[in-house]
Amino acid sequence: MMTLAVLYPWLKALHVAAALVFVGGVSAGALCLSAAPHAAGAQVLAAVLERWDRYVTTPAMLLVWGLGLGLATMGHWFDSGRWLIVKLVLVVLLSGLHGVQSGRLSALRRGAAARPWRAAPTVVVLVAGIAILAVVKPF
C-alpha cells in the first residue's frame, strides 16, 4: 500500500517534469509568434506548434496546476509563508500568457495576419521568478 509520504516525491517529480514541458512549449510559442510577421511559412509552423500545444503543452499545464495544488495541500505549503502565493501569481500570469499565445497561434493557422508579439523576455523573467521562489522560499 502506497502512503502519501512515498507518493509525494513521485508526484513532485511529475510536477517538475510537467513544468519543464510546459515552459518549453510556451517558449517555443513565444519565439514562433515573434518571428511570424517576418517569416515565410509562418502558417505551417503555427499549425505544427498548435498541435504540439493541444496535445502536449496544454495537458502539461493542466498537470502542473493539478499536481501543484495537490502537493501544496498535501505538504501544508499554504501555511508555510507568502512565497507560495507569489509563486501562484507568477504561474497564473505564465498560464495567461500561454492562453493568449495559444489563441494567436490558432488565428495564425487559420490565415489571420500575424501581429507583433514580444513575450519571450517576459517568459524568462516569470520562469526565473517561479524557480527562485520554489527553491529558495525567501519569505
Binding site: 495567461g96 492562453g99 493568449v100 489563441g103 488565428a107
Partner: peptide, 14 residues
C-alpha cells in the same frame, strides 16, 4: 484557472 485560460485563448484568437 481553466475558465481564465479559455477566456484569454478565445478572446485572443478572435
Amino acid at each position: 484557472l481553466v475558465h481564465g485560460w479559455l477566456a484569454l485563448r478565445t478572446a485572443s484568437e478572435a
